[in-house]
Amino acid sequence: MIHAAEGVAEVTDATFDHEVLGADLPVLVQFTADWCGPCRQLAPVLGAVAAEEAGRIKIVQIDVDTSPGIASRYAVLATPTLMVFRSGEPVRSMVGARPKRKLLQELEDVYATV
């Protein structure tokens, strides 16, 4: 079982549509797995971004092993994959761990088009 960083909620196949597609804010989804080293490296980065950007973006994670339906729906083939959803639609996809500064730069594009 993965442990989400503080400020990062865990969603499942059952809760994804409500938590992500129905959200008022843009949502950054991390597709992750327990065995994924880069996913563990990314967890504190996502926690820090969730704290800094609260009110601008919601950050959640979904385990591809326990909730394979959503990963399959969005053709996620690698972990970690970060996907940004806005108004129920995927608008950005990024694969691999990245430092906080780079992630914040990539998210600026998402905010600019809100």
Rank of each mutant, 00 (worst) to 15 (best):
V84A: 14
L42Y: 04
M83P: 05
E53V: 04
R98H: 02
I70N: 04
A43S: 15
V60I: 07
A54E: 15
D65Y: 13
L42S: 06
V49R: 11
R56T: 08
K58V: 07
A75G: 05
P68Y: 12
G69I: 01
E53S: 12
D63G: 13
P68S: 14
S87Y: 09
L46G: 08
M83Y: 01
P90N: 11
V60Y: 05
V84S: 08
L77Y: 06
A78V: 07
A71T: 04
G55N: 10
I59Q: 08
V49N: 08
E53C: 09
A97H: 13
L77A: 14
A75E: 09
A54L: 05
A51W: 02
S87F: 05
A78Y: 11
S93D: 00
L46A: 12
T81E: 02
E52W: 00
G88P: 03
A97Y: 10
K100A: 07
M83C: 04
A50W: 06
A78F: 11
R98P: 00
A54Q: 14
P44T: 03
S87I: 00
G88F: 08
F85C: 07
I57T: 11
T81V: 11
E53P: 00
E52N: 11
S67C: 02
L82R: 13
P90Y: 13
G96Q: 08
R56F: 03
K58A: 14
D63C: 12
P44C: 04
P80S: 13
L77E: 14
D65M: 12
D63H: 14
P68M: 06
S87E: 15
L82E: 10
F85R: 07
V64T: 15
G88N: 08
S87P: 00
A75P: 00
M94D: 14
Q61W: 09
R56S: 13
P90W: 12
G88S: 08
V64P: 01
V45C: 02
V76M: 02
I70L: 11
A71L: 04
S67R: 01
R56G: 05
D65Q: 15
I62W: 03
S72D: 12
A43F: 03
D63L: 11
V84D: 01
Q41T: 15
L77I: 06
V91E: 12
A78Q: 13
Q41C: 08
F85I: 06
R86A: 13
V49A: 14
A54H: 10
A54C: 03
L82P: 06
A71R: 03
K100S: 02
F85G: 04
A78N: 12
F85H: 05
A51E: 14
T66W: 10
A75T: 09
A48P: 00
F85D: 04
T66D: 15
M83W: 00
R92Y: 11
P99F: 01
Q41V: 14
G96P: 02
V76W: 00
T79E: 07
T81C: 11
P90R: 12
V95S: 06
D65P: 07
G96C: 10
A71V: 06
I62V: 11
V60K: 10
R98A: 02
R56N: 13
D65S: 13
T81H: 11
A75H: 12
V95P: 02
G47E: 03
S87V: 00
P99A: 12
I57P: 00
G47V: 08
L46Q: 10
L82N: 15
L82I: 09
V91F: 10
T66V: 09
P99T: 04
R101Y: 05
K58H: 11
K100G: 00
T66M: 11
